[in-house]
Amino acid sequence: MTEEKILLDHGSGGKVSHSMFSDIILPLFENPELSKQDDGAVLDVKGTKLAFSTDSYVVDPIFFPGGNIGDLAVNGTINDISMCGANPEFISVGLILEEGLPIKDFKLILETMAAAAKKAGVKIVTGDTKVVPKGKADKIFINTSGIGVIPPNVNVSGSNAKPGDKIIISGTLADHGITVLSTREGLKFDSDIKTDSAPLNKMVQSIIQSNCDVHVLRDPTRGGLGTTLNEIASQSKVSIKIDEQSLPIRGPVQGVCELLGFDPLYIANEGKLIAFVPQKDAQKILEIIQQDEFGKDAVIIGEVIDKDPGKVFLQTNIGGLRIIDMLSGEQLPRIC
């Protein structure tokens, strides 16, 4: 029997990542905040509810159409904090640099980070840099952490989905993952495919301030919409049904997926959220999202139903029904 080792699958965001978390990480670190398994931890600090989240970015290549590893890292943490219902305010940045990284690339990445933070209205307040010998890292790895305050009456969590909830997605699927893949593989397409990396804090604030009920907010990043819906179905012990015809996917992205055999449901997004909202508020929240700079293509894609808890179903274009399972292992390496 060979010794078990970490495989790329462990970083896929799918089932293998989840079992690593529940079998190895959670038992050692267990506490009520971590056990909730949301995008960020919700902390009670002397009566104030804080959202706290961290994420590391190792994307290859570091530059891709529409962005680079820098704004991806800033927006990613802004979004993780936002998905807790909080307004992100402060961010930390940890940089691991490989010997030989051109200073001009480094500066460009930092400039993009500064611009992303400014656009979202958050401050980068602390950080760290380390340099490792050539070959011990790949150009640049970035860790960002962030905190934000959750307003008193807000309670958003992956475990709050209820039967009857409508599910809204804020825009098109799979843009980021397909952009990174096609850039890395040097695939040349005569079309405009670019990352959707964007800060969603303003969109979330508009939703929260509307006084409508919101049960779940999530950004379907690594593992894609399919994996995120499975996480929510399992956390909330409900079943979810989505309609294939309603899924917004840009033609060129669909085309690349067809060519390479990828299912857009499992491809990462970096500037999209899904919201689970009671039916009575669904139309209003949809309109709020559509008015946001990054939510023009928002649509309702499905609903929470009351059978087979933990399962996610897709009503197909041809009227068939099938299960959407969580991603098993690696589909695309190092997309964020």
């Binding site: 009503q315 197909t316 041809i318 068939g320 099938r322």
Partner: peptide, 9 residues
């Protein structure tokens, strides 16, 4: 066949 739910129809 699976992806489009053909068996189910």
């Amino acid at each position: 066949i699976f992806r489009h739910g053909i068996r189910s129809v």
